[in-house]
Design a protein around this nucleic acid. Structure first.
Length: 876
RNA sequence: GCGGACGUGGUGGAACUGGUAGACACACAGGACUUAAAAUCCUGAGAUGGCAACGUCGUGCGGGUUCGAGUCCCGCCGUCCGCACCA
C-alpha cells in the first residue's frame, strides 16, 4: 500500500467547490424543522483576516456543522461591519475612496474566509455600508424618532482646535490630537442619542433570564447599568458667597447615612455652578480649563491625580444650619453621573479621603463596627488614610448614633423628605443609573447618514420614508480634516419636506455600533423590503449561539439588547423577543511571542529563525544574521508585528490544520498561544489519520458488512472506546469545550492504533465502525479531511449531509470500576470492583488491601467513608 | 481610578455536582527502522530521597472549613480585559 501523504492544499479547494455546487449550506426558513441560529460576530473588513477570525469562525463552524448533523435547520450567515474610521484614514493616507477601499477589502477577506471551508450560507451576505442595508437602518431610526427613542441633546466631544475636527477617544493621546498634536478641548455640541435609559430597569432585570451567558458578562453589564438607590439632597448656598441667582446645590448620594461625616461638596468642572464661579474667579476658570483638556475619556479622568479647587462658595448642611462646608470643583466628578455634584464623606469613601488629605479637610468617622476591637481597628484605619467602607453602626451622628446604616439611611431620608427648602422638600429618594443615553452622532463621512432635515421654520423634519435611503454622496475628498459631508457643496442643501423652504440635511452619521446592533435580525431575511421580515424573524430568532470577543462584553451586546427592545416597541420585531442572543460565548485572543531586532525594531515571526530549547532558545534575524531578542507573548497586533497570516498557514498546512490547532489545547474562552510546533503537531495528526485510513482499509470489514453476533474482548473494548467518544465528543461540542473534544478524538485514534495490532472475534467489524465514527466526529472540525476519508471509506454521499451517529447506551458504562482507597486522606491503594458493589463489600475489600494495611500500621480504624464508584477513605 | 476575569509539570492544558491531580497534546530523553537524515513506531518522565520496595512534598502566596480541597470561604500577590467616539 502506498503511504501517500494527504495533500490538504490540493484537496481542500475541491471539497469547497463540491459543497458550493451542491448548495450544501443554503438555508431556508422552514417552520416544520427545528432551527438553530449560529452566529459569530461579523468582521470589520480591514483587508485581511487574522488568526482571531480563524479562531472565532472555526468555533462557530464546528457548532453549525454539528447541529446540522443533529438534524437542525441551521442558519449560519456572514456579513461585513463595513462602516468605520479605518476606511477614512485609508482615504486620507492613500487617496482612495472609503467605498473602494472597503469593497476591495471585503473581496479579499471573503476569498480568505472561503478558503477556511466554513459552512456558511453566503447567499445571505451583506455589508452594512451598502445603501440596501443602511436604508433600513434609517427607517429604524425614523421609527425610533417617532417614539421619542431618538432625540437630540447637547453633549461633549473631543475637539482638535488645529484640525477643526472631532476626535475619537483613541485619537486623543496624552491629551493631544494624534495628527495635529494640539491640546484637545472638550466642546459641547448638539448630538443625536438613543434613549437606552428608558429600558435601564428591563435591561438589568432581564440579565437574570440569560442563563446561557457567561456570569462575568452579566455582572459587567449589571455594573455598567449601575442601578443605585439613593437620595437627592438640596444644599442651600450661603448667599454672601454664591454667584448671583445660585441659591442651592443638588447632590445625589447613596450614603445619606454618612451626612454627619460630610466635610466638603464637590462639583464637576462643567457643572452650571462651576461655570458661574469660573466667570468671576480666574483661578477656578483656569482649573476648569485644565480639566477640559483631559478629553472625554472616563478612564483618563478617573486615573488622573485627584485635584480640586475651592470656589469660595459655602454650602449649609441640611441637618444643621450653623454648619458650613466649602464647595470645590474637582476633576474626578463627572457631570454625566447623578447631578454632577457630590458631598464628600472622607472617612467612608476612598476617593474622598484622598481628596480631604490633600486639601486639609476634616475626616470624621460616622460608621464603625460595634465590637470594640474591630471598632478600634476601623478607626485606626481611617486615621491612617484608608476609608472604612464596611457595615457598622452610626457614631458621631447625634440622634442617629447606634443605628445600623440602613436604619440611618431611612431616618435621614424620612426627615429630609419632610423638611422644606424654598417651598419644596429638601430631599427625595431616587433610583439612579450609571447608564447614560447612547450618543450616536459622529462627525464623519463613512457611516450611515441620519435621515433628518433641519428647517429654519419647521425645525427637525424626518426624511419621508419613500425618500430613503439618504445616500452618502460619492464625490468627496479627504485632503482636509473634518467631515466631508459638512463641506459638500450640494448634498446637504435640500428643500424642507414639510414647507418647501431651503433647509439642510443632518451631516452627522451614526455610530457604527448602530450597524451591528440589528444585523443579527437582518440575516434572517436579508432581502426583505422592510428592515425585518416578521415570519423569518419569528422562526429564527433569538440567535441560539452567539460567539465573539470578550471586548464586546458591554457595549455591543448591551446596544443589541436595547435594539431588540426598541425594535419591539416600534413594531419591527415581535415585542416578546426582547433578548437577541439566547446563548453567548466569549472566546479568548490569539497571542504570539514578540521579537525585536538589536536596534529595537519589532520583527515579524517570519523574519526570525529560532534555535535551541528552554533557556538556550535564541532568535536570529534572517535578513542580517544578527541576534534578535525574544520578547513577551502578546495579543497579535500590527504594531508589535507578532502576526501570523492565516493565508500562509492555509496554503502551507491547509485550513483543516489551522482549524484543528485553533480547537486543540487551549480552552476556547482563554487565550491561545500560536506556535509553529503546535501547527506542526496538528499537521502530524492529519497525516496520522490518513495513514490509519490506509491500514484500516486492509484490516477492517468491508462497507455494509453484517454486524457479527458476538464480539471478542478486543472488539468489545474498541467499541466501548468508540461509543464513549461519540457520547463525550457530542456533549463537549455542545458545551463548546472543543479542546476536550479534541483530546477525546486523540484518545480514540490511539485506541484504534492499538486495536490494529490485535486479533479477535468481530474486531474487523469494530474497526470499521470505529473509524467511521472517528471520521464523522472529525467532520465538524476538519471537514475537508473528513469528506476525503468518507469517500475513501467507500461512500459516494457527502459527510456534510450525514446524521451524527447514535451511541449505544449499553457500551457507555463499564461493569467494573476502579476506585481509590485513601488512609487519612492520602491515596494508598486502589480497588477494582463490580460497579454494583455495595458499601459493605467495598469496605471489607478495601481494609484487606496491602497498601491500606501498611498505612494503618496496626492503629484502630475509627471510621470508613465509602462513596460507591468513587472513593474509600479509612480514618485511622 | 472604577468594574470584571484568570493563575495546575519544561509548555498548552484535563480533572463531572468536594472524591485516584497531571487525561490528551507539545517539547525533551532513550531505543527501533535507515548508508544517513527526515518521517514513522516503541519506551520513559511532576519535584525530591532511595539500588529497589516505598516514602515525603506538590495546583500563585498565607490562613480556614471538611474524613477528604485544584474545586468552597477569608486575606494577599501577579497577569489580562472593559471604561461609553476603535471595532
Amino acid at each position: 500500500m502506498a503511504a501517500e501523504r494527504y495533500n490538504a492544499p490540493d484537496r481542500e479547494p475541491h471539497w469547497q467547490k463540491v459543497w458550493e455546487e451542491r448548495d450544501c449550506f443554503l438555508t431556508k426558513t422552514d417552520p416544520a424543522k427545528p432551527k438553530c441560529y449560529v452566529l459569530e460576530m461579523f468582521p470589520y473588513p480591514s483587508g485581511r483576516i487574522h488568526m482571531g477570525h480563524v479562531r472565532n469562525y472555526t468555533m462557530g463552524d464546528v457548532l453549525a456543522r454539528y447541529k446540522r448533523a443533529r438534524g437542525f435547520n441551521v442558519l449560519h450567515p456572514m456579513g461585513w461591519d463595513a462602516f468605520g474610521m479605518p476606511a477614512e484614514n485609508a482615504a486620507m493616507e492613500r487617496q482612495t475612496h472609503p467605498a473602494t477601499w472597503t469593497y476591495a477589502n471585503i473581496d479579499a477577506m471573503k476569498h480568505q474566509l472561503k478558503s477556511m471551508g466554513l459552512a456558511i450560507d453566503w447567499s445571505r451576505e451583506f455589508a452594512t455600508c451598502n445603501p440596501s442595508y443602511y436604508r433600513h437602518q434609517q427607517r429604524l431610526f425614523l421609527d425610533m424618532y417617532a417614539k421619542d427613542l431618538a432625540y437630540r441633546r447637547s453633549s461633549k466631544v473631543n475637539w482638535d482646535p488645529v484640525d477643526h475636527t472631532v476626535l475619537a477617544n483613541e485619537q486623543v493621546i496624552d491629551g493631544r490630537g494624534w495628527r495635529s498634536g494640539a491640546l484637545v478641548e472638550q466642546r459641547e455640541r448638539m448630538q443625536w442619542a438613543f434613549k437606552i435609559t428608558a429600558f435601564a430597569d428591563d435591561l438589568l432585570e432581564a440579565l437574570n433570564t440569560l442563563d446561557k451567558w457567561p456570569e462575568k458578562v452579566r455582572l459587567m453589564q449589571a455594573n455598567w447599568i449601575g442601578r443605585s438607590e439613593g437620595l437627592m439632597v438640596r444644599w442651600a448656598l450661603d448667599a454672601a458667597t454664591a454667584p448671583k441667582d445660585a441659591t442651592e446645590l443638588e447632590v445625589f448620594t447613596t450614603r445619606p447615612d454618612t451626612l454627619y461625616g460630610a466635610s466638603f461638596l464637590a462639583i464637576a468642572p462643567d457643572h452650571p455652578l462651576a461655570l458661574a464661579a469660573a466667570a468671576s474667579n480666574p483661578a477656578v476658570a483656569a482649573f476648569s480649563e485644565e480639566c477640559r483638556r483631559m478629553g472625554t475619556s472616563v478612564a483618563a479622568l478617573e486615573s488622573a491625580e485627584k485635584k480640586g479647587i475651592d470656589t469660595g462658595i459655602v454650602a449649609i448642611h441640611p441637618l444643621d444650619p450653623t454648619w458650613k462646608l466649602p464647595v470645590y470643583v474637582a476633576n474626578f466628578i463627572l457631570m454625566e453621573y447623578g447631578t454632577g455634584a457630590i458631598f464628600g464623606c472622607p472617612a467612608h469613601d476612598q476617593r474622598d479621603i484622598e481628596f480631604a488629605r490633600t486639601y486639609g479637610l476634616p475626616v470624621v468617622p460616622v460608621v464603625a463596627p460595634t465590637e470594640a476591637k474591630a471598632r478600634a481597628r476601623a478607626l485606626a484605619q481611617v486615621e491612617a488614610g484608608e476609608a472604612y467602607v464596611d457595615d457598622g453602626v452610626m457614631i458621631n451622628s447625634k440622634a442617629l448614633d447606634g443605628l445600623d446604616i440602613k436604619a440611618a439611611f431611612n431616618a435621614i431620608a424620612d426627615r429630609l423628605e419632610g423638611e422644606m427648602l424654598a417651598g419644596t422638600a429638601v430631599a427625595k429618594r431616587k433610583v439612579n443609573y450609571r447608564l447614560r443615553d447612547w450618543g450616536i452622532s459622529r462627525q464623519r463621512y463613512w457611516g450611515c447618514p441620519i435621515p433628518i432635515i433641519h428647517c429654519p421654520t419647521c425645525g427637525e423634519v424626518p426624511v419621508p420614508v419613500d425618500q430613503l435611503p439618504v445616500k452618502l454622496p460619492e464625490d468627496v475628498s479627504f485632503v482636509e480634516p473634518g467631515n466631508p459631508l459638512d463641506r459638500h457643496p450640494t448634498w446637504k442643501h435640500v428643500d424642507c419636506p414639510k414647507c418647501g423652504s431651503k433647509a439642510v440635511r443632518e451631516t452627522d452619521t451614526m455610530d457604527t455600533f448602530v450597524d451591528s446592533s440589528w444585523y443579527f435580525a437582518r440575516f434572517t431575511a436579508p432581502n426583505a423590503e422592510t428592515p425585518v421580515d416578521q415570519t423569518a424573524a419569528d422562526y429564527w430568532l433569538p440567535v441560539d449561539q452567539y460567539i465573539g470577543g470578550i471586548e464586546h462584553a458591554i457595549l455591543h451586546l448591551l446596544y443589541s439588547r436595547f435594539f431588540a427592545r426598541a425594535m419591539g416597541e416600534t413594531g419591527n420585531l415581535s415585542p416578546s423577543l426582547k433578548e437577541p442572543f439566547a446563548a453567548l460565548f466569549t472566546q479568548g485572543m490569539v497571542v504570539h511571542e514578540t521579537y525585536k531586532s538589536g536596534d529595537g525594531q519589532w520583527l515579524l515571526p517570519t523574519d526570525v529563525r529560532i534555535e535551541g530549547e528552554g533557556d538556550a532558545r535564541r532568535a536570529t534575524e534572517i535578513g542580517s544574521g544578527k541576534p534578535a531578542e525574544i520578547g513577551s507573548i502578546e495579543k497579535m497586533s500590527k504594531s508589535k508585528k507578532n502576526l501570523v497570516d492565516p493565508d500562509d498557514i492555509i496554503q502551507h498546512w491547509g485550513a483543516d490544520c489551522a482549524r484543528w490547532f485553533m480547537l486543540s489545547d487551549s480552552p476556547p474562552e482563554r487565550d491561545v498561544i500560536w506556535t509553529e510546533t503546535g501547527v506542526a503537531g496538528a499537521g502530524r495528526f492529519i497525516q496520522r489519520i490518513w495513514r490509519l485510513m490506509g491500514e484500516i482499509e486492509v484490516k477492517a470489514a468491508p462497507k455494509d458488512a453484517p454486524r457479527p453476533a458476538d464480539f471478542g474482548e478486543e472488539a468489545q473494548e474498541l467499541r466501548r472506546a468508540a461509543h464513549k467518544s461519540l457520547d463525550a465528543v457530542g456533549r463537549n461540542i455542545e458545551a463548546l469545550r472543543f479542546n476536550v473534544a479534541v483530546a477525546q478524538l486523540y484518545e480514540l485514534s490511539n485506541a484504534l492504533t492499538a486495536a490494529l495490532a490485535k486479533q479477535g472475534a468481530g474486531l474487523d467489524w469494530a474497526l470499521r465502525e470505529a473509524i467511521e465514527h472517528l471520521v464523522q466526529m472529525i467532520g465538524p472540525m476538519m471537514p475537508h479531511l473528513a469528506e476525503e476519508c468518507w469517500a475513501r471509506l467507500g461512500y459516494n454521499t457527502l459527510l456534510a449531509d450525514q446524521p451524527w451517529p447514535q451511541a449505544e447506551a449499553a457500551l457507555l458504562v463499564d461493569d467494573r470500576v476502579t476506585i481509590a482507597v485513601q488512609v487519612n486522606g492520602k491515596r494508598r491503594d486502589e480497588l477494582t470492583v463490580a460497579r454494583s458493589a455495595s458499601k459493605e463489600e467495598i469496605e471489607t475489600a478495601a481494609l484487606k488491601l496491602e497498601g491500606v494495611v501498611r498505612a494503618i500500621e496496626g492503629r484502630p480504624v475509627k471510621k470508613v467513608i465509602v462513596v460507591p464508584q468513587r472513593i474509600v477513605n479509612v480514618v485511622a
